[in-house]
Amino acid sequence: MGELTDLWVGVQNWLFETFVGPVIFWLGQMAWYEPAYNAVEFVMLGALQIAVIALGMRFFEKRWPLEKTGDDRLIGVDRVYTVLNKLGIIPFAIFVITYPISQEIELLMRSWGMAPPRIERLVPWLGDNVLASFLVYFVLYDFAAYWLHRAQHAIPWWWALHSLHHSQRRMTVWSDDRNHVLDDFLTTLALVLFSQMVGVQPGEYVTILVVGRLVESWSHANVDMSFGRIGERLLVGPRFHRLHHALANPEERHIHDHNFAPVFPIWDILFGTAIYDGKHRPTGVDDPVIDADNGRGWAVQQVTVFGRFLRAITPRFLRAPFQPGLRPPAE
């Protein structure tokens, strides 16, 4: 293990000293030296995640696919999302915006004499158990992510963004990162601020993010698998999460408003949003406007969905100005 750690750090140092460091020095942005060094590791972790998805998770999809037929061309854009997000291109842009905000909030809290609490201060024995401490912060993070996910469905303008994630008819391990940039920004900012408030350290946050995203990638897999009767109530799997992406129908208009939890199903169980019925349902959305996302490329999807967002936040009377002498069409 020590040799692997040394190899990992060695590669990170080489990449930073060869490529990233000189660019930062040339731009005169030495204040970003430490964040940039950490960003190199984030990119390396992203490449590792892509390898796990492509070589590991895809093996199960190819060997035991739930949906054996369909238009595989729809999956191509999801691969683009995965590369852009896992290699840190989109997260870097978001980080550049959120980092100054989070730093200002931290400085403001300290000027008020408020330091982010650490769970270890409340439960001292956790300080001697790294794994237990990590799990506690992981559970808190997932709890916040559960409620943010419910907000994405409940708030109309946020659903206008998040609906892009649900529009995919061919859900696979590549689908997890299929999100609008603004949607990613809002959730990232909220989770970063929450993590600061409960005292999650930067190193812990990165680990939580990587582990959580791998679980979420697997939960989107095109396989009919779970972790067993007990296990599927402890950890989200493909069968549990697939229901969340189910195509609504007249009998189940709000079927996708269930199974929100990213990693731990306990939140759905506690708050009455869990469904365990084992039924196989097609995925996608029943709104033709949103369904039209399928077949579009990354850039067109981003522009189109942003248009949906703008219409959602525009007051109704501005969207359809009144014209004297005209009546609404008869239903």
Rank of each mutant, 00 (worst) to 15 (best):
D183A: 07
D184Y: 14
F185I: 06
F185V: 09
L186C: 09
L186P: 07
L186W: 12
T187C: 11
T188E: 10
L189C: 10
L191I: 07
L193Q: 05
F194S: 10
F194T: 08
F194A: 11
F194L: 09
S195W: 04
S195P: 10
M197I: 14
V198F: 06
V198P: 05
G199N: 03
V200I: 15
V200Q: 02
Q201K: 13
Q201N: 12
P202W: 04
G203M: 08
E204I: 12
Y205W: 07
V206C: 04
I208T: 05
I208Q: 05
I208S: 04
I208G: 01
L209C: 04
V210E: 04
V210Y: 02
V211M: 12
V211W: 06
G212A: 10
G212S: 13
R213L: 14
R213D: 09
L214Y: 10
V215A: 11
E216A: 07
S217A: 14
S219F: 10
A221F: 15
V223E: 02
V223M: 11
V223R: 01
D224V: 14
M225Y: 11
S226N: 15
F227Q: 13
R229V: 08
R229S: 15
R229C: 07
G231R: 00
G231Y: 00
E232V: 03
E232A: 06
E232T: 14
R233T: 12
R233Y: 07
L235V: 12
L235E: 07
G237W: 00
P238R: 01
P238Q: 01
P238L: 11
H241Y: 08
H241Q: 01
R242P: 05
R242V: 10
L243I: 15
H244Y: 06
H245K: 00
A246G: 03
A246C: 10
L247I: 05
A248M: 05
A248K: 02
N249K: 03
N249G: 11
E251Q: 12
E252A: 10
I255K: 00
I255Q: 00
H256E: 09
D257P: 02
D257W: 05
D257F: 07
H258W: 09
A261K: 04
A261G: 03
P262W: 01
F264Q: 01
F264P: 08
P265E: 02
P265W: 01
I266D: 04
W267K: 06
D268Y: 02
D268C: 07
I269Q: 14
L270M: 13
T273V: 11
Y276D: 15
D277N: 13
K279T: 13
K279I: 12
K279Q: 13
H280C: 15
R281K: 08
P282R: 05
P282N: 09
T283L: 06
G284Y: 00
V285M: 00
V285H: 00
V285W: 00
D286G: 13
D286M: 05
D286K: 07
D287I: 02
D287F: 01
P288V: 02
